[in-house]
């Protein structure tokens, strides 16, 4: 699809490319820098003498003998039991994604197919709930959860995260289901299926692209959450992000910033992999809400 309108003069091309290279450096360099630095000792990562020490690992060489060291990772994963937080995060993410997708597909499907006015009001309320910062709700959870002895458990946090996730999941799946032609399930119902059977046998087989995309965003919400998990989980049930935050409080005085650095790199790695494999779905998910209004 090349037309005159998309042709460019060399200056425009150079400008566009130059700007893009700058943006890419801004976007990606911090991650590469931190990944590289996580294999150094603290004296190199935060170098008073010369910033280039972080590149060549001068102090790392004199302290450990090699120019790379895994001490930060050992300290975080083994000594500070970061693996426990990783396990907790895995449990939380798997449960949150499964439950919110199950509930979300049911609700989203109904909202997409209902022509009544209350479906609109439902979505409008969901939008308002989506605007609520999670931390404002947390102050409402604490007292009842203490009273009923629900505080600190993984299961409580999972349910809370699923609930906070619902407005977004509903909106997204609603717009995906709108794109599945209505004739499909209606013809099944003409053939004698009930509404649920039509959903089960006709809609479920064709809904996976939308569900996978929505699932990615549910996963991100659960994985990235700090406000809820840091307030509702007890110390032994902590997930990765509050654990990293707690490293900051305790370790900076002990001089073990490298624990936090390697934990940060460990927490970023799965997201990296996710973007690599699901880039198309993420992009389509981000635009789904926008383009279809």
């Amino acid at each position: 699809m090349s037309s005159i309108a998309t042709k460019q003069t060399p200056t425009v091309k150079i400008l566009a490319n130059g700007f893009l290279i700058m943006w890419l450096i801004v976007a990606a360099f911090p991650f590469l820098w931190t990944l590289w630095g996580s294999f150094k000792v603290e004296g190199d990562f935060f170098s008073k003498a010369n910033w280039a020490n972080a590149l060549f690992g001068t102090l790392t060489q004199s302290e450990t003998g090699g120019s790379f060291t895994g001490a930060g990772y050992y300290g975080a994963w083994v000594q500070e039991e970061f693996w426990r937080a990783v396990m907790n995060t895995t449990i939380v993410c798997v449960c949150v994604v499964t439950i919110s997708l199950t509930f979300g597909t049911l609700g989203g499907y109904a909202l997409a197919r209902s022509t009544y006015r209350y479906a609109f009001w439902f979505l409008l309320f969901a939008l308002m709930f989506r605007a609520m910062p999670p931390i404002t709700l947390v102050s409402g959870y604490l007292l009842p959860f203490f009273e009923w002895n629900l505080w600190g458990r993984l299961s409580t946090t999972i349910i809370v995260l699923v609930a906070l996730n619902q407005p977004f999941t509903l909106w997204m799946l609603h717009s995906f289901f709108k794109n599945i032609p209505q004739d499909l399930d209606e013809s099944a119902m003409v053939d004698g299926c009930t509404r649920f059977q039509a959903f089960r046998h006709v809609i479920i087989p064709v809904m996976w692209p939308g569900v996978i995309t929505t699932g990615l965003f549910s996963f991100l919400l659960a994985y990235n959450d700090f406000a809820v998990t840091s307030m509702l989980l007890s110390k032994e049930n902590q997930t990765m992000i509050p654990k990293i935050a707690s490293f900051l409080g305790t370790t900076q005085t002990k001089g073990n910033v490298m624990f936090a650095v390697s934990a940060v790199v460990s927490a970023t790695a799965p997201l990296f992999v996710m973007v690599m494999f699901f880039q198309r779905q993420i992009v389509s998910g981000l635009t789904a809400g926008a383009v279809k209004g």
């Binding site: 199950t102 509930f103 609700g107 709700l137 409402g140 009842p144």
Partner: peptide, 20 residues
């Protein structure tokens, strides 16, 4: 169809607002 989501949102979003 919307019952599960509604219950969750009422319990964990609407009720906490009242409680707050």
């Amino acid at each position: 169809f919307v019952l599960p989501s509604t219950v969750l949102m009422l319990l964990f979003i609407a009720m906490p607002i009242v409680s707050v």
